[in-house]
Simulated assay, not measured.
Amino acid sequence: MTSAHSCALATSLVVSLCFGLPMATAQPLSPVPRDVVQFSATATVEARQDQLSVTLRSTREGSDPLGVQEQLKAQLEAALVVARANAQPGAMEVRSGNFSLYPRAGRDGRISAWQGSAELVLSGRDFERIAATTGRIQGLTVAAVVFGLSGELRERLEQQAQAQAIERFRARAGEIARGFGFGSYTLREVGINSQEQGGMVRPRVMALEARSSAAEAPLPLEAGQAQVQVTVSGSVQLK
């Protein structure tokens, strides 16, 4: 094979390989957003708490676990009889809470006693009914009192706060556009977040001492204020 023929063969081989390779396609670059502003607006609506939950608890201790369990069951059943007689849908709901039984070890590491507890929960909107029923139940002490907002009230407050937050967001967007010398704006993206303060997010809980079983006095209660806060955050395109 002559050198000229070899050169021609090599040239044809290189060309065929070049044509066999896929050609890279250029990807268009995404335009960098310009004249885009990010900010947020918040609105808060306040209302008096209309939901109450009272937890009553009985504790027993003894050497026989079955005996302790039976004592707790009897105490809880007696309390349920009183509570159910005063229950009313929406005003006061009655349910059993935690029921636990566990051993206690002595210095030698062996089980020396058994301790248990049973809970009864009264919840609803009728504070006077719940307070009076709590005073009638014997043998159980008040473990916790929690105030909050009912689902209906919270939803209504959230709608009010959301409408205010959206209006504030729109007003601020217009102010920002005019401040930068633009005539208007368009909404690019938006997010809405809500939370309750003073209610279920941060519940008001009080631990109370045991009441006299003979007094049958209503539990003193005073609800506080709760806030529903809505924040609208997002970005707008200035035009």
Rank of each mutant, 00 (worst) to 15 (best):
M1P: 04
T2K: 07
A4F: 07
H5E: 15
S6H: 07
V14H: 02
C18E: 09
C18I: 11
G20Y: 08
L21R: 12
L21G: 02
A24Y: 09
P33K: 05
Q38H: 11
Q38N: 11
T42H: 00
Q51V: 01
T59V: 13
R60Y: 07
L66H: 11
Q71C: 03
Q71A: 11
A74N: 10
E77C: 03
G90H: 02
G90T: 02
A91M: 08
A91F: 06
R95N: 08
S96Q: 15
G97E: 12
F99A: 09
R107A: 15
A118P: 05
G124H: 03
R129K: 14
A132P: 01
R136K: 15
A143D: 12
V145E: 05
L149M: 09
L149A: 03
Q162V: 02
A163D: 13
A163V: 04
A163R: 12
E167K: 11
R168D: 14
R168G: 01
F169Y: 13
R170C: 08
A171Y: 04
A171C: 07
E175G: 03
G181C: 01
G183M: 03
E189F: 04
G191C: 06
S194E: 02
Q197F: 03
M200H: 14
M200T: 15
R202E: 14
V205M: 12
S213A: 15
L219V: 03
P220H: 08
Q227E: 15
Q229D: 01
T231E: 13
S235G: 10
L238T: 00
K239T: 14
